[in-house]
Each structure stands twice: as structure tokens, then as C-alpha cells.
């Protein structure tokens, strides 16, 4: 382990969490400010890529035993299910609803929208796909 690695890893530990937090913010901000599922998902993926770059694939597999293909599938499923959910209320496919609620911690008049659920599906799919692609190539080369 040379000097570069040490610096990279120490820095990565800090930076990754900053990026991840930022990506979550981006995801939730999406409805009213710049951001959303795509951006959030891609930023999360880039944070993960950074992790995979500084630590090796094997140890990352132990720390993060996530099946990204399954994540893609779950994301797609959530997106479709949100769309189908509107059938329960007799509305056309992918109709969304929103409302304002007083929640503890989040403050008064917090907006809850089903569109965010759909965006969650997009988010998961994007993370899953990006990681699948990069890991597939990465593993092929080792």
C-alpha cells in the first residue's frame, strides 16, 4: 500500500459521505428545486464508484452486499406500481396525488406527493443500472 492509496482512501471516506448526503438532498429537493431521481441516482452512483475505485472489489462486496440488478428490477417495479396504484382510486395510469401534512420533525405543511414515490423508482433504477454497467466491466478486467 503506497502513500497515494492512503491519501485516496482517507479522503474517499469523508468525500463519499458528503456526496451521498448531497445526492439524497438532490433526490428529495427534486420536486421544487433542481434535482430529482435521475440526478440523485447518478450522484449516488458516482459516490459508490469512488468507493469501488479506492477499495478493491472483493472487500466492497463484503461491505456492500447489494445485488444491483435486483435493485434495477425493484426500481422499475416501484415505478410501475406507483403508476398502477392510481387504478385503486379509479384514475388513469400514472395519475399522481399530493397533499400537505403536519409532520413532527419535518415541520408544518410538509408536502407528500406520490410523484416522489415514482421518482424513488427512477432513483433506484438509475443507481442499479449505472453500478451494474461499471461493475460488469470492472470485474471483467480483474
Amino acid at each position: 500500500m503506497n502513500m497515494n492509496d492512503v491519501i485516496l482512501r482517507t479522503a474517499t471516506k469523508v468525500i463519499t459521505f458528503i456526496i451521498l448526503t448531497f445526492s439524497l438532498y438532490m433526490f428529495f429537493a427534486g420536486h421544487n428545486n433542481p434535482g430529482g431521481g435521475f440526478i440523485g441516482g447518478l450522484i449516488t452512483a458516482s459516490a459508490l464508484v469512488l468507493l469501488y475505485l479506492s477499495f478493491d472489489l472483493e472487500s466492497m462486496k463484503k461491505v456492500l452486499p447489494v445485488n444491483y440488478i435486483a435493485m434495477t428490477a425493484i426500481g422499475l417495479l416501484i415505478a410501475v406500481a406507483t403508476g398502477m396504484g392510481s387504478f385503486l382510486f379509479g384514475a388513469p395510469f400514472l395519475s399522481h396525488a399530493f397533499g400537505y401534512y403536519d409532520l413532527p420533525l419535518f415541520g408544518e405543511k410538509t408536502e407528500l406527493a406520490t410523484a416522489v414515490l415514482f421518482d424513488l423508482g427512477v432513483y433506484l433504477t438509475v443507481v442499479g443500472i449505472t453500478m451494474t454497467i461499471i461493475l460488469a466491466i470492472g470485474e471483467d478486467q480483474t
Binding site: G30, H31, N32, N33, P34, G35, G36, G37, F38, A79, V80, G83, F93, L94, H96, F98, E111, A113, A115, F118, D119, V122
Partner: peptide, 21 residues
């Protein structure tokens, strides 16, 4: 109609949600 300020995002997930899916 969609309760969102970010019009681009609202178009993507709500108005044209099907495209995004």
C-alpha cells in the same frame, strides 16, 4: 395540479411520467 415548483421535474415524473417510465 402536481404540487411541484420544479417544472422540469414535474413534467418528467408527473405530466409525462409514462415517458420517463
Amino acid at each position: 395540479e402536481a404540487g411541484g415548483d420544479n417544472v422540469v421535474n414535474v413534467i418528467l415524473v408527473d405530466f409525462r411520467g409514462f415517458d420517463t417510465m
